[in-house]
Design a protein around this nucleic acid. Structure first.
Length: 616
RNA sequence: GGCGAGGUAGCUCAGCCGGUUAGAGCGCAGCACUCAUAAUGCUGAGGUCGGGAGUUCGAGUCUCCCCCUCGCUACCA
């Protein structure tokens, strides 16, 4: 049986995690990891903070602290909030630790010794004030085409032209505002062009089962023809290039960060980590659409060139972006719902967030989160359909049988929910509900899988409405026992089926059913036969149910209103702050960041412009 | 600008190797029920499937053109 390595994009330690990240990456990845564990697969779920790169140094400079201070702060905030939400990473590591430094340097050295890299000398802009080379993005000047004065060294946002820094008129450093000078430098490039024909075209071509957005993006790059890409940068903050005479150079973040998946595995399993990366192992990357190219082209290219049996990704189910109240999520404009704040302000509503974000997951296109929709989904689906079904069943059971599963004599057809002559995968409930959920999960269709799960709750409500045990109890004791008993079994299986989506609510419900949550029973449910399709599980006659309680609480209007008000207030505040710093030129400062940045987290470059350079 | 992904009911989204009356949830209207957090169940209204042209016996579904949104565009991550 192959091992399964599931990775979730490393969040960039430049800000907290928001609902866009969760909906696109961490919740689907968590559901996937939980399902595999329940099925008894050998799975590792790997993540950690991505702590290098220019934007972190800029934030540190802006705040007058060290880069390490910045990443320490966000690593803690991000890690704690993931843990509290119940994202079940086997490890949440970070790229500033020693294991990672050592392993990524070794990886680079290995490729270097194989003669993989091209050594290329080039002239780059250098900021003498700030004492560092400038990434194209951090050179600001006038666009040669449209004369926009706020154009970046790589692109003019106004007219959309792709630029190179030397084309900019009046170039200035976004760090210090000073005029940069050209300096010669040397960097090591990954020869993507050389392996396009021999490897990448065919490899990508073999991935016809991948999502259209992922394939499309890859083909777009391949069609253009790949070019060598620099794997080192002239920067202080990062993993030093492990070569003589490479002082002041670090590994490119996109070289080193994906290796973070491997180093985190090594940190977790020092003795057998290699089996997860070079053995009989399947690799799945959960990411947002903005880093498809890095996970589908560059990292696979690195692994391929490394050879040594390294596995290539089996699947990269990248998602699109989540919008918030009709607008793109934006860190610089503070237009986001931050996980750490949600957890504080909406206590005991973790599964509600998981549920809502799964039901609107941007699996095929950008999708939309609104607080009103959140309220509706919680109130009408979790409270109204699921919680209510659980509550009606449990209350009726207490009322009529004091919570003890009644003896059901001969099953009478008119009151039966399903044909008891069918078993295993042919069992009607398995065939119509459990198998489809499993199949959708196997297919990475988490939204549909969760919806199908909810249909079982709808079925339960319908079954009660059809047979009306509260009426039946007055005329037909045997039929009442049968109907309520079957309703309990539906609820029990529903509780098991809920687990990957809403682990805490599942646990609560199992407790109310007096079923605890034995591992054996879960395994039976999730992997009872070779297809990996679950088995219908039943509570025995005489079994005592636990105490009934409400599974979910309604979300009141005032809670929603205050969240919306907060969002608008903080956005207005941040707009005012930006406006005062950079005048009218505010919208130009958006730079998307982060390996895990699935929804346009941004930093304001021009605001940094106003900060005194630290020349010491 | 180039490339890629989208544009389907009031809202949020399915459907798209072309094939009978285009689906779901929410919202809305009516009915039923009263075990349940006024929850649930049933029925119904509601769409010229972004616009235009074409291929076809037949087009949300294929082709071409146009409009709009989002992403990528190689030194942001």
């Amino acid at each position: 049986m192959p091992k399964i390595t599931i990775t979730a994009a490393l969040p960039y330690a430049n800000g907290p995690v928001h609902i866009g990240h969760l909906a696109g990456v961490y919740i689907p990845a968590d559901i996937c990891a939980r399902v595999q564990r329940l099925r008894g697969e050998e799975v590792l779920f790997i993540c950690g903070s991505d702590e290098h790169g220019v934007p972190i140094t800029l934030r540190a400079r802006k705040e007058g602290v060290t880069s390490q201070d910045v990443v320490d702060r966000y690593h803690k905030i991000i890690g704690d909030s993931f843990k509290e939400l119940g994202i079940s990473f086997d490890i949440y590591s970070r790229t500033s630790n020693a294991t990672h430094k050592e392993l990524s340097q070794a990886f680079f050295k290995n490729l270097y010794d194989k003669g993989v890299f091209k050594e290329i000398r080039s002239e780059q802009y250098f900021d003498e004030h700030a004492g560092q080379f400038l990434a194209d993005r951090y050179i600001v000047g006038t666009c040669p085409y449209c004369k926009n004065e706020g154009a970046y060294g790589d692109q003019c946002e106004k007219c959309g032209s792709t630029l190179s820094p030397t084309e900019l008129l009046n170039p200035k450093s976004a760090l210090s505002g000073s005029v940069p000078v050209m300096r010669e430098t040397i960097n090591w490039y990954l020869p993507l062009d050389e392996i396009q024909e021999s490897f990448l075209n065919e490899w990508i071509g073999s991935k016809s089962h991948w999502k259209s957005n992922v394939i499309g993006q890859c083909k777009s790059w391949l069609n253009e023809g790949l070019r060598p890409r620099a794997m080192t940068r002239d920067l202080e903050w990062g993993v030093p290039v492990p070569l003589e005479g490479a002082d002041g150079k670090v590994l490119y973040v996109w070289f080193e960060a994906p290796i973070g998946y491997i180093s985190a595995t090594k940190e977790l399993r020092p003795d057998d980590w290699e089996q997860w990366w070079t053995g009989d192992s399947r690799l799945v990357h959960f990411i947002g659409k903005d880093n498809i190219v890095f996970h589908c082209i560059i990292f696979p290219a690195m692994l391929h060139l490394r050879g040594d049996g390294y596995v290539l990704p089996n699947h990269v189910p990248a998602n699109e972006f989540l919008n918030l109240e009709g607008q793109k999520i934006s860190t610089s404009r503070n237009w986001a719902v931050w996980l750490n704040e949600y957890l504080e302000e909406m206590p005991n509503r973790k599964d509600e967030l998981r549920y809502v974000l799964t039901s609107i997951a941007p699996e095929t296109k950008d999708s939309e989160f609104t607080w009103k929709d959140y309220q509706t989904r919680v109130n009408s689906e979790l409270v109204g359909i699921l919680g209510n079904f659980a509550n009606r069943v449990l209350v009726l059971m207490q009322k009529y049988y004091e919570g003890v599963m009644p003896v059901v004599g001969a099953v009478r057809e008119p009151f039966a929910l399903f044909d008891r002559n069918l078993a295993g995968v042919s069992h009607p409930m398995v065939r119509d509900y459990i198998s489809p959920v499993v199949e959708l999960l196997n297919n990475y269709q988490f939204r549909d899988a969760q919806f199908k799960m909810m249909e079982l709750a709808r079925l339960g409500n319908k079954y009660l409405a059809e047979h009306e045990p509260w009426k039946l109890v007055k005329t037909d004791a045997a039929a009442t026992a049968q109907v309520l008993s079957e309703a309990v079994q539906v609820l029990y299986n529903l509780a098991l089926l809920m687990e990957p989506f809403m682990p805490e609510a599942s646990e609560r419900l199992l407790l109310q059913l007096g079923a605890g949550a034995s591992v054996a029973e879960r395994k039976l449910f999730w992997s009872a036969n070779p297809q990996g399709v679950g088995q219908w599980c039943e509570l025995a006659e005489g079994h005592s149910l636990g105490a009934a309680g409400l599974l979910f609480q309604k979300v009141e209007d005032d809670v929603i209103e205050s969240q919306i008000a907060k969002l608008q207030a903080t956005a207005a505040e941040s707009a005012a702050a930006l406006g005062s710093t950079v005048g009218t030129n505010d919208a130009a400062g958006e730079v998307a960041l982060g390996i895990g940045d699935v929804a346009s987290a941004t930093v304001d470059v021009l605001a940094i412009n106003a900060i005194k350079p630290d020349v010491s």
